[in-house]
Write a protein that binds this DNA or RNA. Structure first.
Lengths: 213, 213
DNA sequence: TAGTCTATCGAACGTTAGTTCGAAAGATGA
DNA sequence: TCATCTTTCGAACTAACGTTCGATAGACTA
């Protein structure tokens, strides 16, 4: 439990070499694909090894243990999305416009990083202790990012947004719509994500009956 | 895989005796509590045995195997909810009123059967083959139940609802809001479900800014 | 009372999975 | 060439889990 450097990134030489980093990337990507399809606990390291062509023992050169592998995926993926979104709300436009951009960015990221984001969305509870806390912290920042804009639209001062029950609820309703897409989206059957984004924004803004698209 | 009677309900004498059925109920309830908290695959039959005070081997008197246990929970719980909802849409009122009732019923069921419904919501993919199909069928009926009313609100004929892309999306947005509540609802922190239902209905009907509550 | 059905137990088996470890091959640089 | 560092491997260990099975005690019945 208590270790020296619990979260050191296993890229040798602190990432100086440019050969090993892409290999880790491919490893994380293959792991995310497996975990996205079967779930974290049903994905064995032997599965990942077979998928990447490496040996079972060789896996542990890249991560400390299975939970660490999950953490690496989540930190990288969610950190990257969060960076995009926190930047987005600093750019100009009305609250409505910024909320629209947040939703559409999320869905764009959903398409380009489906497996990784699905793992982030559904496997937080598979982390424990310090690793859990680190990712939970990213989630809190993402929530606040969205809640701030929602609060602005409803005329709630920024510093009150966090404890404001109604803002909390409405923000979580939006996250519900966004995150549940993983459960039903089929590229062949459903429209493009652009269209999906427009539809969701319309419903968020104007309700079920929609506005005037 | 191919067995004689794959889905026989393990109540002896076809449920004639009134002693064993409540015992099975308690078993399913305890299982649902464990699976709701840790997930299906992380819940061992040894856990369930310990929770109910029975022995490991004794479990198999009540279900055929672990997947069967999950199936029994889902069939009972989701079947019961579906019955409520299909009845609800036959009762009178405008489409708006019926949609409101559907949402509020779902949330009421969410509160009274939290563990069981959470298992239904997140563990469909843990079933396979025939058992998967049976529960998926219930889900399809539930979807159609909701989609019909949504379609009615948007002026789409009942027989076209199923392939109507927009109806499909908006209905799934609503399910997203409803199902995601499992991920954040804390009785101490959040309002009563009644209030939660009103807020959700308001957002569904009028959008983020809401109507005139 | 003998026999059958209900309900439960404990032990055991086989499999799978996470993790460790020492060896070794390849690359790098003095 | 030699020493060091990076990367990979195969074997092994241990824990946990799903499932099976024969035994058994109690209840009900003929």
């Amino acid at each position: 439990m208590a270790e020296g450097t619990p979260f050191e990134i296993p890229v040798p030489n602190g990432g100086k070499t440019s050969r090993t980093a892409p290999k880790l990337d491919r490893l994380l990507s293959a792991s995310a694909a497996l975990m996205s399809a079967r779930g974290f606990s049903q994905t064995s390291i032997r599965d990942v090894a077979a998928e990447t062509g490496l040996s079972l023992g060789g896996m542990y050169y890249y991560f400390k243990n299975k939970e660490d592998l999950l953490f690496l995926i989540q930190e990288k993926t969610f950190g990257s999305l969060l960076e995009i979104q926190e930047k987005t709300i600093t750019e100009g436009g009305s609250a409505e416009e910024r909320l629209q951009r947040l939703v559409k960015n999320h869905l764009a990221y959903f398409i380009s990083h489906f497996n990784e984001l699905k793992v982030c969305t559904f496997e937080l509870d598979s982390l424990k202790g310090e690793r859990y806390e680190k990712i939970a912290q990213l989630r809190r920042r993402y929530f606040l990012c969205m809640a701030r804009v929602v609060g602005e639209m409803l005329g709630v001062p920024v510093d009150q947004v966090e404890e404001h029950g109604k803002i909390r609820q409405r923000t979580l309703f939006i996250f519900g719509m966004l995150n549940w897409v993983f459960m039903w989206y089929v590229p062949e059957k459903d429209d493009s994500v652009e269209n999906l984004g427009s539809e969701m924004v319309d419903m968020v803004m104007n309700g079920l009956k929609g506005g005037n698209e």
